[in-house]
Every structure is written in C-alpha cells, then in structure tokens.
Design a protein around this nucleic acid. Structure first.
Lengths: 377, 377
DNA sequence: ATGGATATTGAATCCGCAG
DNA sequence: CCTGCGGATTCAATATCCA
C-alpha cells in the first residue's frame, strides 16, 4: 500500500514530468498515443476525419464554387478501412485515459455512427450525445435535402464505472439557471477567429469554434487537468485549454497546421478567462414557422383564413401553404398577392375563427411560443 | 412490351390490392415484412426498441439498473444480439421498399449508432440525420449529465441512386420561406394527444407526437403513398398518414397497443383532397422550349437580348439559338459561355426590352405557362 | 467617419430526363 | 449502362466598396 501513501500533488507533478505537457507532437496519433504512459490523461477531445464522400463539385446558385474538403487525410477506401482506423485510435485513446477519464468525439452523419458503434464495442460508456446546432450553416444549394445544420458530439466515459468530471453547477449557471441541455447553439468559426494564410485562405478546412471547446472543457474538466487532442489541427483545443488553465497535449501530422497552432497558442496568456462572456448563449425569441401550427394541430388542413374585413379568403393546405384563387404560397406571399402588394405580414393579416371569435393567426403563434418558453424554462 | 402498355393508375390499383392497405398486421415485423411483396412500399418509418437485452422481450431500457454484471463478454453479446435484430429488420425493410423508396428511423444514443452503422453496411444511402429537439424533455434528476433533450432520426434512401421524394418547396414555405433545417423543435407527446388507459396511465411508454410524423410524411411522401411502420405501437404513423391522405401498413405484436391504435385511427376523417395538394415545384412545371416563344411571335428573330447589367448581348435566331460574338447555342449555353461559367439559367439571365421596359425572358415563359394552364383547366 | 449596398464563404455524401 | 443538356438552386455572418 505504499503507492496510496504518496500524496496526490506529488504524483501529479511526477506525472506531468513524464508527459509532454502543453506541446504538439508531430506525427501519427496512434503511434504517439501508444508511446505515452497509460492512464495519464484526464480528457480526450477528438475531431477525426469525417470520411466525406463527395464525388462531384458543388456550385452555389450564383455559380461560385464551394471549397470542399478534399484533403487526402479525409480519404478512406471503404467503411471497413474507416472502421479499422477508428478502432485503432479509440483503443489507443482508451489506454491513455485515467480510470475516471472521458472522451469527446465530434462528427457528422457520415462517420459518427461508425464512431459511436466502435466506442460501445470498446467498452466506453456513453454519457450523452450532444448536438452542435450551427447558427449559420451552409445551406443546401440544390434544394434536395434538409439544411445540414448540426454536428453530433459523443461524450463517453472510459468505462461504466468511471466517475467522470461534470461541473453541473457551472453549466446550469451558464444557462440562466436551468440545466444545460444536450443541444447547443453556436456559430461556425468565421471572422477574426478563423485562421487565414497569406492569401487570405483558410489554414484549416474545418477549424472548430473556440466556444464549442470552451463549453466542453468548462463542463468536463477541472483546472490543471490534462487534455489530449489526437487530431490537433490548428489547435483550438490547445488555445482554449490554455485560456482555461488546463494543460494540453496535441498530436498532428500536417506541418502547416502545426505552425499555425504554435503561433496561435504562443500569444495566449494562460488562465485568462476573457472568452467567458462570449460563450454565454444569448436568449433569443423562439421562432415559430407557420407550418408548425398545422403540425401541432392548432390549425386543420382545409381551414379557411380571411383578412379582418373579410374581403380576402384563403385555404390552409396540409403542407403549410395557402391557396386563394390562383395564388398559392406562404402566408406572407399570398397575403401580398391578393392585395397586390409587394409584401405582407401574414401573421397579422390573416385571421381565423375559433369558438365564434375572430382572431389573427399571430395569436396562435403567441400561444405556442408561450408554451414552448414555459416548457423550456 | 406489353407491360409498358399498362397505365400507371391500373398498376397502382393492382398493387394496392395485394397489399394490406390501411390495416394493422399482428405479429413479428420481420416475418410480416418478408411475406409482403418486394418493392411495394414508398416509405418506412421505424421506431425500434432501444433495448440492448433482446432476451428480455425487447422492453425499454431500465435506467435503474446500477449494479450491472461487469462482464465484457456479456455486454458484447447483448450488442451483438441487438445488431443481429437490427440488421434483420432493416434487411426485410429494404426488400420491401420501391427502388426510389426511403426509410426513417428514430433512436437515442443507446441504439442509434448501431442502427446507423447497420444502415450504411446494408447499402442504404443516408440523406440527413435529423434532430428532434424536445421542448419539454425530462430533466436529468441527479445532475450528473446534460439534460437528454433530443432524439436522433436518420433519413436514408434505399440506395445511392434512389430518387426519393422530398417536398423541398413545401418545407421551405412552411418554415417562413427559409430552408427547413436538420434540427426540429417539438414538444413531447402529452395532454389530450397522449393515449391513456382506464387507470389514466400511459397506453404506450414512448408514444411519439403527431407533429413529428406530420413533418416527416409531409416532407418525404406524396398523397396516396404507402407508408409502412414495422413498430406500429399505438399508431401515430397510421393516424397522421390518414389525416394526410397517405396509406399505412402497421405491424405490431402487443394486442393492447393494437386495440388502442385501431380505436384511435377509426375516429380520424381522412384528409380532404384539396387541402392535401402541395405547391408545384418549378422542377415539375411544364417545360417550355425557348423556340416556342419565337414560334408564338413573342420574340422576333433578330431581336437583341442582354443581361441585367447590359454587359453581354446576344441575337435571337429563327431556330431558337442565340449568337453572341463567337458563341452560339441555346440560351443557357450562350449565357454560360459569355460569363465563363459551367452553366447558366438562360431564362433568368437574358432580358429583353418591351414597350420601353426591361424584363427577363422568363416573364414571357410565365405568360405561356399561364395560358396553357388555363386551357388545360 | 458612416451607413448602405454588394461580394464572399462555410465538414456537402446536393438534378433529372431524354436519347 | 452511358452522355448530353435544360435549367433549378442559398442563409447568415463578415468583408469590402462606394457614396
């Protein structure tokens, strides 16, 4: 029982000595992870290749070309190869984690199901899946699918019996005193935060916003913890770890990313919480589209709407469109068309009758909004 | 070539005859699916059990299970069983789908990664993952994790080359004229909508809100389509299908659910035809060749066209081609060539002058279309 | 300087029919 | 199966330009 007699601070100091703290290791992440001491890391954040399968170019409606992720590091021959790669780095990651350590992975529908399955097979214990809702996602330019407006994160403990760090109170506090939910709203990384090269191009095609890492490290690490990122890229994890007084270990293969990351991190004063305020989510009014009134049964398909003077009438269709004579479209468009105006606020223009009383459909929206806000408060 | 002589409506009627339309089949979904004719269903919506212990009769996971058997083999075994079950019903489902059919699955982090992996392995083609954000989720009572405030849906085509139904315009319109995103906000199923038994208890533990199915069927089916639900439960899919003028086939094992579903669906008036019509997408509008504008005297041979900024000019020839400098060809081809683009919509790019006013030639097309529509009405 | 208009851009499995 | 081609398709946040 000699080992337990050693005090924790001393052990931590020794541990830090044999670990390449606050540095970037150059090379393959699996090799590096396997050469680090087992059970030495508190948290791993991983943003692995997504294995996108893009077989043709994409242009915007204005004919400009979308700058796709076509880097070699995102190319895999098959799902089998991707699985093999995934299980290899996850296995190495698991070995590195302390018994009470945890891991975050981010991905999209192209890869996240493979990653999740591998995690479960390797005896990680899932704690949450978390949705990063993008405030400003790239639209679906061809109008063929839903706007791909989110990415998925998995938070998993090393094992079922791990007692992981979760700063419940801090999260609740940051969320206006209600529990932090599993859906997070952040803008994508643009503007001054986005690293640019000499030609004003992106240094990295998929740089993640600091706000995302800020939330993750704030929620699931303690000051002084060691956070490892095996796909370090341009070092968002390192930058945020430093700001939050955590230690990082980055692993990255591409020299251009490493150069950018080192430069970036060098300018950061450790433990300065300047970004804290920017992370606090602004409470915004819940947007209620007209279609949701029908979906939620507040207006029946086939119902008749009319303006206050009952000069114009329109029928509600199941898909949320209005029809009035030859005109069809959204409540706003049809409102404008029947009056011969350029535009119209359909919410206040169109009325309905309920229990013998005439009211603008905006009242229904207000009802839903109140209900939703009450529910989420 | 006799088969092509058969008109589509006749084929649809025959197909409907050999299918148990608008009914609930009692028993195991895999057996039933395998006994139905292949390639006969437009859409499948599936809300499979989340349970990982199949031998306990596929009930929902018991969250109070703390002192788990820490036996790796046992755990792997249960995942393996769940995977086996998942692949079996997905394979049967895929066989049932028409070539252009699609499938929706809903799940949580307990099972959705297994389902997603199986889908990809079985050559389904993922179109979107969609997040149902719950307006009123159950809080995390112990304060140990983030509030589990969402569930994940996967929308996948039968194969990569399937041309699935997606009512893009309807979705956009119902969302106040901006693209529908992949994150959807709905309350969970409570109140009057929630089916209760004699003791005021829930009839089904995980009844889904009708609003969710409403959006799914509105987005990815057409009126008259056949929608199959292999885990029918208390019949939300059937209820919404009926309201929206779609046909359903339900499969369910539990008699108590079936009784509730039958009672529920019997009271629903099927959707009214008029209210079920959707906005006609531009893609499906009558094609008007440019040459017909000349044939009908709306544009004279020799007329000059130009773009809105009058940087490019072109002359109309009698055969419907344009000439601009060295370039000649269709309105689209010449529009692309003069701008140096890959492609161009000549209808909106080229303008003409009429009675001193500049207007896109698309206005002339719109006039012809309106005339045609009036004639055919 | 300032405000308004215009241009750029982001992890994307992004068309469909006729011949 | 293939090729060819008509023609339909974008939201929010920055960045830049111009009056």
């Amino acid at each position: 029982m000699l080992r337990t007699a050693r005090t924790a601070p001393v052990a931590a100091a020794e541990e830090a000595q044999r670990l390449p703290i606050d540095t970037i290791l150059v090379g393959d992440c699996i090799d590096h992870m396997n050469s680090l001491p087992a059970g030495s890391v508190d948290l791993i954040f991983a943003d692995p290749p997504y294995n996108l399968q893009l077989d043709q170019g994409l242009t915007r409606p204005d004919q400009s070309k979308v700058d796709a992720v076509d880097d070699d590091w995102d190319k895999f021959d098959s799902f089998a190869h991707y699985d093999q790669f995934t299980r290899a780095w996850l296995k190495a990651a698991r070995r590195l984690l302390k018994p009470d350590g945890a891991l975050w992975v981010i991905g999209s529908y192209h890869n996240i199901f493979r990653v999740g399955t591998a995690l479960q097979d390797l005896d990680f214990w899932m704690l949450n899946d978390v949705i990063w809702r993008k405030a400003n996602p790239m639209p679906n330019f061809r109008g063929t699918r839903f706007t791909n407006a989110h990415e998925t994160l998995i938070w998993a403990a090393k094992s079922q019996k791990s007692r992981v760090t979760f700063n419940y109170e801090a999260m609740k506090l940051a969320n206006d005193d209600t529990q932090m939910r599993s859906d997070w709203l952040f803008p994508i990384c643009t503007g001054a935060e986005r690293l640019k090269d000499e030609d004003d191009g992106k240094v990295h095609p998929t740089q993640k916003p600091e706000a995302l890492l800020f939330r993750i490290l704030n929620a699931t690490t303690k000051p002084g913890d060691i956070v490892l990122d095996p796909f370090f890229g341009t070092g968002t994890t390192g930058a945020v770890a430093r700001k939050l007084g955590r230690h990082f270990i980055g692993i990255e293969r591409e020299q251009s990313y490493i150069d950018a990351a080192r430069q970036r991190i060098a300018t950061i004063r450790p433990g300065v919480f300047e970004a804290l305020q920017s992370v606090k989510p602004k409470r915004q009014e819940t947007r209620i589209p007209f279609g949701s009134l029908i979906e939620q049964g507040l207006i029946e398909p086939g119902a008749q709407l009319f303006d206050l003077t009952k000069r114009y009438f329109a029928m509600v269709r199941a898909d949320g469109s209005l029809v009035s004579g030859n005109h069809q479209g959204s409540i706003h468009k049809v409102g404008a068309l029947v009056q011969g105006f350029e535009s119209c606020n359909g919410w206040t223009f169109w009325h309905h009758e309920q229990a013998g009383k005439v009211a603008p459909i905006d009242d229904l929206r207000a009802g839903i909004r109140q209900k939703l806000d009450l529910l989420s408060a």
